[in-house]
């Protein structure tokens, strides 16, 4: 009997988890239905902050109860009700650090978070209201921006090809300081019979050094610990690597999409 196929997101996440795994990164998870504290406030985006407008949020009709301890609930009750579809995988940074601190495990921490996120924006060939992001977090006593560059350099060389290289541009995210935009230079895969494509720079993710307030919010001492974080869309990586022209195909449930890739099981 013929074997079935894996969805291209699964294939990509396997490559990503494998590469980062060899650099010491675990894989962490968090809920897709988030509370405001984890999705916004703990990440340095207080209510009324213009940065909340940067990401178009899906809100729920009425908040939904969540399982947190009574003491936690009392201190920030409203904020801990699940009320948004997470707009990014960054809240899992906070959840992961909180859990580790609670369990008495101090840094170093290294995790990636591949997961589905939601943005309330009009969809077209390059925009989808739900897509996957891969988040990365590394916290320690001596983690630097140069480590972020080295880590991403290794990742992209293994994922996109040995010629790939990264560069940083200044950016702004409320939860990192300094913040950078990450561009990667690479050559897209050529289809059989077609000439090799020209290399080009492409904006693929955002990142930076975790904002000290975020580290404090997780219950860690920002004088002692610092680290980097990054996040970017997974569909976009697959699109540039394999030449997919429409992001809406990924979560369409269409069998033709999954079989649109040549597959080679190792």
């Amino acid at each position: 009997m013929a074997e079935g196929r894996l969805h291209p997101i699964t294939v990509a996440v396997r490559e990503i988890a494998d590469i980062f795994g060899r650099m010491g990164f675990g894989v962490a998870y968090g809920p897709e239905l988030e509370d405001e504290w984890h999705n916004f406030t703990s990440l340095n985006v207080p209510p009324g902050h213009p940065a909340r407008d940067m990401q178009d949020t899906f809100w729920l009709q009425g908040a939904v109860a969540t399982n947190v301890s009574a003491s936690e609930k009392e201190s920030r009750e409203k904020e801990l009700e699940r009320s948004v579809l997470r707009t990014h995988t960054s809240p899992v940074q906070m959840r992961y650090m909180e859990e580790q601190v609670k369990a008495g495990v101090m840094p170093p921490y290294r995790v990636i978070v591949p997961g589905k996120v939601f943005r309330n924006e009009a969809t077209d060939a390059t925009h989808e209201a739900q897509f996957y992001q891969n988040e990365g977090l590394a916290i320690g006593e001596n983690v630097t921006l140069a480590h972020l560059k080295g880590t991403l350099d290794t990742f992209f060389r293994e994922y996109l090809g040995p010629e790939a290289k990264v560069r940083f541009r200044p950016s702004f995210f409320p939860f990192t300081e300094p913040s950078v935009e990450v561009d990667v230079w690479f050559k897209p895969q050529a289809r059989a019979g077609e000439p090799e494509s020209e290399g080009r720079w492409l904006e693929v993710m955002g990142g930076g050094m975790v904002h000290p307030q975020v580290i404090e919010n997780a219950g860690l001492d920002s004088k002692k610990y610092q680290g980097f974080a990054f996040g970017g869309g997974i569909e976009r990586l697959i699109m540039v690597k394999h030449g997919v022209n429409d992001v809406r195909l990924f979560h369409s449930g269409d069998l033709r999409f999954v079989y649109g890739f040549e597959e080679n099981v190792q």
Partner: peptide, 9 residues
């Protein structure tokens, strides 16, 4: 299991 994907058609 590791799977390699080629160009998308």
């Amino acid at each position: 299991r590791k799977v390699l994907l080629g160009p998308y058609k």
